[in-house]
Design a protein around this nucleic acid. Structure first.
Length: 598
RNA sequence: GACCCCAUCGUCUAGUGGCCUAGGACACUGCCCUUUCACGGCGGCGACACGGGUUCGACUCCCGUUGGGGUCGCCA
């Protein structure tokens, strides 16, 4: 036994030693070349240091083109497997579901890196800008982030991105926050407002300038526009031509002395930028494709990308889950993180939500404000459920979930790679299902104010007849797709002066119907204990006596008491409306028919 | 135009090389239930974009084509 095992042990030890030596050699080489040539720091290698693995996110590489990518990858792999410290215990107490998640991750080698994510509590955010109301695209990202935070026991934060005074409107902040609240989403910590942090950003722009990683750009907006137009005409790339990077120190000093306005650009080093993405595959971009973008405007204020990085760092955001329309920004932001010496969060770029015409949802194209769906009778639970399943799948055949269930089953691995189209018809179907999940009491509470708004009745009237409202809601429930449908469908339960449906009038309010209605009304009037059974009995008896089919009684009666040819089962309808009302309406209908004939 | 992402029914999706004659949901539709309208039940219609490769075998892996989307602001 020992004889068989010895060669294995020996070769294993040998391989391990080789790996270690290889690592050391390359590290020394890298350190040396940095000292001599001032080559861009190879974060990938620094990253690969075992002692760094706990502080630095190992998902990112920021490799200079001078480094052999294959070597980097290989070392990272070896480090991870050979001498990575045992993963720290998860911060969050494991529920059964989380354990299940871990099992799923283990069985999926492709996503092995996910396991490492548990080394610090998840802190995620949604960062809407108040340049419009909350639309479904932003709401969906908020939901994904919220679910992720709740699933892991981490924090979900809200940040309002209102750095652009000209474009953002502070009166839109409250509607955005309350629309999120309607969905059940609130910030776990105080909401961060970028407008309050404007001065702070300036220091970071200056820091980048001072470090030599940024430079002043004196090009006027007009000049830049002209550049772009020319590039467009020549069919070239639309990137900044680095005119101001070529300025000599004397030229720069002169321009500063002349008080020429300047913006600050960050200089993107040669090489390529890559990062792992927990949703999409690994993303790589040649740095030539990333322009030297502006981080501070000529008035000194920070632009979006700088502010985002500073805030995400300050807010200790661990995972940036956002739409894949931000991929370009991520490449830019990685360079700011690097210039500022911040450690990178984990990125996840979720596919976009498209309109039925396949364009990105946007307020400008007239996409609805989330609050508008509320007005249109959509339940927040339905919206939440529907949006969560757009571009993400629980990988089962089930579709209807409560928020609580979604929190339990959420897994960022389950995002799709492709964009999805927002289909309101299906949202309605989800709504119907969620209405079915609600109790009659809760439904009644929701419908009551709508009935008052519609002018059917008063708050007081409803409060004193709660049981009545509850039964109305109960028998209408299966006929409704939106909460607002209750209003339309329940009119005759509250108003007496409805007009008979013309077609049904012609068909059912025949001369014979007068006798039927009158006699049936009389019988109903005589019932002592008015119930579904006694109503049905009265109808059946009358039908037998008159030798008529039940339908002959049912249809005129329904029309008489509701004005329309369809609705809840007749016995339910008559029971809920109440004996007196029913009799009164039937007699009134009989009179109407007589008057109609004369 | 440059760069990037993506590709299963009309739409949302399942599918990780044989369980696929491709499953579910919405929509559409037939039948049943039923006094009506709904609900519900049982069916139907309906997709692997195309072309190459790899393989004994491809919806699944690779390449290309086509198509769709995104980004290219001193906006966010």
């Amino acid at each position: 036994m020992v004889l068989i095992a010895t060669p294995f042990i020996l070769s294993f030890t040998f391989a391990f030693l080789l790996t270690f030596i290889e690592l050391i050699v390359i590290l020394i080489y890298n350190l040396f070349s940095n000292l001599i040539g001032g080559v861009t720091v190879n974060l990938a290698l620094v990253d690969a240091l075992p002692e760094k693995t706990q502080q630095q996110n190992p998902h990112f590489q920021f490799a200079s083109v001078t480094n052999d990518e294959k070597v980097v990858k290989e070392i990272k792999r070896k480090v991870r497997h050979a001498d990575a410290p045992p993963p720290p215990p998860p911060i969050i107490e494991k529920s059964e579901v989380i354990i299940e998640q871990d099992i799923m991750r283990e069985s999926s080698p492709k996503k092995e890196e996910q396991v490492e994510m548990t080394d610090k509590p998840v802190r995620v955010r949604i960062a809407p800008s108040p340049s419009g109301y909350l639309h479904v695209g932003t709401a969906r990202m908020a939901i994904a982030n919220f679910l992720y935070a709740r699933h892991t026991g981490g924090q979900f934060l809200i940040r309002i991105e209102n750095t652009d005074k000209a474009r953002s409107d502070d009166s839109l902040i409250e509607p955005i926050i309350s629309a999120l609240k309607w969905l059940g989403i609130e910030s776990d910590e105080e909401i961060v407002y970028q407008s309050e942090r404007i001065e702070l950003y300036k220091g970071f722009a200056q820091k980048i300038l001072d470090s030599g990683k940024g430079y002043r750009c004196f090009c006027s907006p007009e000049l830049l526009t002209a550049d772009r137009e020319e590039a467009m005409a020549n069919k070239g790339p639309l990137r900044y031509n680095r005119r101001c990077l070529k300025l000599t120190q004397e030229e720069i000093d002169k321009k500063i002395a002349d008080e020429e306005q300047f913006a600050i650009r960050i200089q993107i080093p040669d090489g390529q930028t890559t990062f792992n993405d927990i949703v999409s595959s690994d993303l790589k971009r040649d740095n030539r494709e990333i322009e030297d973008f502006i981080i501070a405007r000529s008035d000194g204020t920070a632009t979006y990308n700088l502010a985002v990085v500073v805030d995400d760092n300050d807010m200790r955001i661990t995972h940036v889950l956002r739409g894949n329309d931000h991929i370009t920004n991520t490449f830019k932001q990685i360079h700011i993180y690097e210039a500022l010496g911040f450690s990178l969060p984990t990125f996840g770029h979720v596919p976009l939500l498209l309109r039925p015409d396949k364009k990105k949802v946007s307020k400008r194209l007239g996409d609805k404000d989330v609050a508008q769906y509320k007005e249109e009778g959509i339940l927040p639970e339905a919206m939440f459920n529907f949006l969560s399943l757009l571009g993400w799948s629980p990988k089962t055949d089930r579709e209807i979930y409560t928020v609580k269930e979604l929190i339990e089953i959420f897994n960022p691995d389950n995002f799709n790679a492709s964009n999805s189209i927002f289909n309101e018809e299906k949202l309605e179907a989800f709504n119907k299902e969620h209405i079915g999940l609600m109790s009659d009491h809760d439904l009644a509470a929701m419908v009551a104010p709508l009935l008052v708004d519609a002018g059917y009745t008063t708050k007081y009237w409803l409060e004193t007849r709660w049981e009545y409202l509850r039964s109305v809601v109960s028998i209408l429930k299966t006929r409704v797709r939106r909460i607002s449908d209750f209003v339309e469908l329940s009119k005759y339960f509250f108003e007496f002066d409805y007009v008979y449906d013309a077609q049904a009038d012609e068909k059912n309010f025949t001369p014979e119907a007068v006798e039927i209605l009158t006699q049936f009304a009389e019988r109903l009037e005589k019932i002592d204990s008015y119930s579904k059974e006694t109503i049905e009995k009265a109808l059946s008896e009358l039908a037998v006596e008159k030798e008529l089919k039940k339908g002959k009684l049912i249809h005129p009666t329904r029309l008489a008491v509701s004005g329309i040819p369809n609705g809840p089962g007749l016995y339910d309808l008559l029971l809920v409306l109440g004996q007196d009302v029913v009799v009164e309406r039937m007699k009134k209908a009989a009179e109407y028919i007589i008057k109609k004939q004369s």
